[in-house]
Design a protein around this nucleic acid. Structure first.
Lengths: 222, 222
DNA sequence: GTCAAATCGAACCGATTGGTTCGATTCTTT
DNA sequence: AAAGAATCGAACCAATCGGTTCGATTTGAC
């Protein structure tokens, strides 16, 4: 009874007794959907294309996902979860706020400007008129949560006397946006086809921090 | 030969001897297209809907515009031209850069966050994967041109000794983005359904300028 | 090897799409 | 009033869409 009664072979722990429950196939489908959605947007991506790209029959598609929208949402959540890990720990590994913010800013920018994240942005923004709930959920679980996290960090820095900020919520978003200056917008419009290099990122983030600190550093008493 | 051989009546200067050349009808069509595109995005907007919204037969639609994409581009250009006027003069009416930037920033933000501009952003971003030329053109004729204009103004301020900026191009985009902080992004995702009030705009722009000046004001010699 | 279940694959559905066509109608000019 | 052109409106086209169905085939468990 050690292993024979459940969970078996095929390279991993594939348990194949329930329709639409094979994690390998699910991953396969999401990978295909990723390519197609990224390349054509939500509307122009057809379920036929996705089935073909995933090497899966269309019937199977609908066994694993109820419809096109659910498939898309599942894809976004998978990808976000994968990226969120690791990026936000940079904040706690350096007592100096300049270095901590610099590290974090670069991670954040690299993540947001990746091929997938930019495509997802485009697709979600594109459909958010007809599907406002999707847009709102994407915004709240992504950018908004990131801003809250930084705001919390800034709060700590303020109470430690390392920064002088009145409205940390506003300052957090200012910081995020400053880090994206001249980077994200042209990518959203597809005016720049490749993610920025690390040098570009470093330059923009450095400039962002210089401005941020010029505004919020602790000033000596007058 | 003063007036009878061309240009005539019907409330204005309507000359109706060429197919697809009636400016009133053209405006009518663009107005309808505006509503439909804004409400449903590019893909989900059908030419039938547009014809109905414009009170025009579908045949006439194709007399005035070659196809859906050309109609959409014409709409964007009309609207951009209409909005661009007047906003950029605010820069030259005040010798004090703080007041000039403040006025300009508020105009800019109000314009970019208007119902139409946000919808256009959404639609263009949404299709720019499949139609990169459209996205690039939109970006260059819009945000990029705006940034260049501010950069020119900043150049003047620098040479007049009123500001201390090394990279005016970067500073220009920083200023624009700072003015949009916490305003544009949630609107793009439709997480905020109405344009910001003038009070909100004023608050964000004021904070943007405070940060901008903290970084780029002329500092007394050390 | 046997059996049941998951998957395939291809046909099929109704709806809708962008775009065209054409005779009937409306309007402008003479 | 008569002519002629722009517009209407409705039918029409082929293509494609998301989604369903079902017999044939593969696959895993025993």
């Amino acid at each position: 009874m050690t292993e024979s009664s459940e969970a078996k072979v095929k390279g991993g722990a594939r348990n194949r007794r329930v329709a639409g429950a094979d994690p390998d196939k699910r991953r396969q489908i999401l990978d295909g959907a990723n390519h197609v959605f990224a390349a054509r947007g939500f509307d122009a991506a057809s379920m036929n294309d996705i089935a073909a790209a995933a090497n899966v029959s269309k019937g199977t598609l609908y066994v694993y996902f109820q419809d096109k929208e659910h498939l898309f949402v599942a894809l976004i959540e998978r990808e976000r979860e994968a990226q969120k890990r690791g990026a936000f720990e940079a904040l706690n590994h350096d007592p100096d706020p300049v270095r901590a913010l610099s590290n974090f800013g670069q991670c954040l920018v690299r993540m947001i400007n990746s091929e997938f994240a930019v495509s997802a942005h485009r697709v979600v923004i594109g459909v958010s008129e007809r599907m406002p709930d999707l847009g709102q959920s994407f915004y709240e679980k992504g950018p908004m949560q990131g801003a809250r996290l930084i705001a919390g960090y800034l709060d700590r820095m303020v109470s430690e006397g390392k920064l002088a900020i009145e409205d940390t919520q506003l300052a957090a978003v200012q910081f995020i946006d400053l880090c994206q200056v001249s980077l994200l917008r042209p990518r959203l419009f597809n005016a720049v086809r490749t993610p920025p290099t690390d040098e570009e990122i470093h330059r923009v983030v450095a400039s962002a921090i210089e401005m941020f600190m010029a505004r919020y550093r602790v000033k000596p008493k007058a």
